[in-house]
Write a protein that binds this DNA or RNA. Structure first.
Lengths: 307, 307
DNA sequence: CCTCTCGCATAAGGTGTCCTTATGCATGCT
DNA sequence: AGCATGCATAAGGACACCTTATGCGAGAGG
C-alpha cells in the first residue's frame, strides 16, 4: 500500500488540529496557499474531500474526522520516538578503547568522569580493531597509531613508554638494583617481550640475548603487571599505568630511563561530531586528567593535535 | 519539536526493515544513491549515526535500533488509517436530497439499491440548501434547478409536474369529477398553493380566484398528500410521488393534464468524482429505476445531460 | 591467491515538486 | 455598505531530491 506524500499528511494533521489552513500554515512555517495546495493533493489521493470549506473556517468531513485521530497518534508517536532518540543519543557516550588502556588507565579514572557528568551514561567497548567510526558504534575511541586519520580529530594522550619494574622485595633480594645490568641477575617475567631489547639498547646495555619481534606491543600488560607485583620477576611496563602501585611502593621503577617505540595513545573522534556535548565533555575531562599529571613534571603539554 | 523531513524517515523505515539500502530503494522505487542520501540527511538531523556500514550489509546502531520500532509502528498506524479511510470512503454513500424527494420517491426505493449493493452503506441527508459539494459532506445530491452548475454533472430525473388528486370517496360524493371545473365544488386542501393557479390555467379554467406566489414549490407535499388520502379535500400533487397510491386506488387523478413550472429534479455530483464506484452505482441504479417507469409510457428517455 | 561481484558512498547535474507572491471570491462583522 | 477574514487559484521560481556515473572495500568463488 502506497502512502500518500508524507508532507501532505503532515499538513493535514496540522490543519485538522487547528481547524484552519492559515493557522496550520503558520505553525508549519509556510504560506496558506501551500497548505491549501497540499490538502487538495491529499484529497485527490484519498479520493474524498477531507475538509468542508465553511465560511470562516474549515471543518473535517466525516472521512477527514475518521482519518485525523489516527494520523495525529502516528505523529505523536514519531515525535516522541525522535525526541527520545535524540535524548538517548545525547545521553549515552560510547567509548571504544584498547583493552590495556581501559584496564590500566581509563577504568580507574572513569568514576571521576561520571561524577562530573551524572547525566551521561558511559558504555565501554574494548576492542583492538582499527577504529572506524563508520562501522563501529562508538562516539570516541582510544587507539594507537601515528595520529593521522582523515576526517578524525586526534589528541595525543601519551606515548607507550616502558621501563623495567619490580617489587621492592625482589630488588632487595639482590641487594638492590643499581645498574641496568643488575636486572639480568633477576628472573624476567616475559623475556620474549620486544620492549626489553629496545629498553636495554636505550640504557646502553648491549647484547643481553633477549629476543622478540620488534613490533609494538599494545597488548595486555595486565597479567604481566600482576606477576611483577607478586614478585615473580622483573617486568617491562608502562609507568603511567602503574602510577598508583609506584606511589604505594608495591612496585619500584629503578631507572628513569624509559624506552619507547614511537607509538602513542590517541583520543580520536569523528571530526563531524567534535561539537557534540558528550564528546566535548569527554575530551575536556580526559585532557584535564593529563594536565593534572603533567603539571608536576613538565611545564605544559600541548593539549591537542588535529589530523 | 520539529520533525525531521518525513521523506527521510520513510526511507529510514524501509532501510531498517530491509537491512539494506539497495532493497529499500527498490521498494520505494528509487535508486540506492537516493536512499544513501536520505539516510545521511537523517543522521545529521538526529545527530547520531543510525546505521553501521558493514561489508555486505548495513546494521542499525544502538540509536537506530531504538528509533526503528517506534517509527515502524507509527507508519503501520498511518498505513492502516489510510487504508481504513479509503475503505470507508468507498463504502459510505452520502446523499443529500430535498426532503420531498426523499420521502416520496427515494426512501421507498432505497431498499432495492441496498439489495443491489450490499457493501454500500447509505447516509441520507435531507436539506433544502443550495447544493455545494465544497461545503456539504455529500457524494451525490438531488436538487431542483436549471441543471447548470459548473464542475457538476447533472442528470435530469423528472419534472416537478403536478395534477389534482383526491380520494375516490370524495369524488363519488359529487357524483364523480368530469371536468376540471368540477374540482371547485370540493374543498381544496391548500388553496394558497401556487400550483393551483398554474394548473387551472393549463386546464383552461380561468379565474378561479385562487391566489399564491408564483414561485416554485418543492416543499413538503407530505402533509398535503396525507390529507388528500384521508379525503379531506382535493390536493395538487406530483404524480410520480404517488404512483403507489394511484395504483392501489387510494387516490385518483381525474385528469391527465399536468401542470409544470419548468423546474426539474436533478441528480448531481461533482464532475471530479464521477468515476467513483459508489457514485457510478447510485447513478446507474437511479437512472435504471427511471427507465423501468418510462418504458411503459414514453419510447425512450434520454438518460443524461451533463453540465 | 587473484578476481569478480556486491553493496554503499560520493560527485555532478537535471528536474519536478512544492512553495511563494499576487489576486479573486465569498462571507460575516461593524 | 464597507471592511476584514479565510480559502482558492494562477503563475513563476527555487531548492530539495533524485538520477547517472564512478569509486571503493570486502566477501565469495574459482
Amino acid at each position: 500500500m502506497n502512502l500518500p506524500p508524507l508532507a501532505a499528511i503532515r499538513v493535514f494533521e496540522a490543519a485538522a488540529r487547528h481547524g484552519s489552513f492559515t493557522n496550520a500554515a503558520e505553525e508549519l512555517g509556510m504560506t496558506q496557499a501551500a497548505v491549501s495546495y497540499q490538502i487538495k493533493l491529499l484529497e485527490e489521493r484519498i479520493g474524498a474531500p477531507l475538509f468542508l470549506r465553511r465560511p470562516r473556517q474549515v471543518t473535517l468531513t466525516e472521512v477527514g474526522a475518521r482519518l485525523s485521530p489516527a494520523i495525529s497518534e502516528a505523529f505523536d508517536l514519531m515525535r516522541a520516538a525522535i525526541a527520545a532518540t535524540r535524548e538517548s543519543a545525547d545521553g549515552i557516550l560510547t567509548i571504544t578503547t584498547i583493552p590495556t588502556f581501559a584496564a590500566n588507565w581509563l577504568v580507574p579514572r572513569l568514576g571521576s568522569f561520571q561524577l562530573a557528568h551524572p547525566s551521561l551514561a558511559v558504555r565501554l567497548q574494548a576492542s583492538r580493531d582499527i577504529v572506524d567510526f563508520a562501522r563501529q558504534d562508538a562516539d570516541v575511541g582510544i587507539r594507537s597509531g601515528a595520529g593521522r586519520w582523515p576526517g578524525v580529530v586526534a589528541h595525543k594522550i601519551f606515548g607507550a613508554d616502558f621501563a623495567p619494574m619490580l617489587s621492592p622485595e625482589l630488588a632487595a633480594s639482590i641487594g638492590g638494583v643499581k645498574t641496568p645490568a643488575d636486572l639480568l641477575k633477576l628472573p624476567i617475567v616475559d623475556p620474549g617481550d620486544p620492549w626489553w631489547k629496545v629498553w636495554f639498547r636505550t640504557a646502553g646495555v648491549s647484547g643481553p640475548g633477549l629476543r622478540g619481534d620488534p613490533r609494538s606491543r599494545f597488548g595486555d600488560q595486565h597479567l604481566e603487571g600482576k606477576a611483577v607485583i607478586a614478585g615473580q620477576g622483573v617486568g617491562i611496563l608502562t609507568p603511567v599505568f602503574y602510577e598508583a602501585e609506584l606511589r604505594s611502593g608495591q612496585l619500584i621503577q629503578p631507572f628513569d630511563i624509559v624506552g619507547n617505540d614511537n607509538h602513542f595513545y590517541w583520543l580520536v573522534y569523528p571530526e563531524a561530531r567534535r561539537n557534540l556535548p558528550k564528546v566535548k565533555a569527554f575530551r575536556d575531562w580526559l585532557l584535564g586528567q593529563l594536565e593534572q599529571k603533567d603539571s608536576g613534571r613538565s611545564p605544559k603539554a600541548p593539549p591537542a593535535a588535529t589530523a
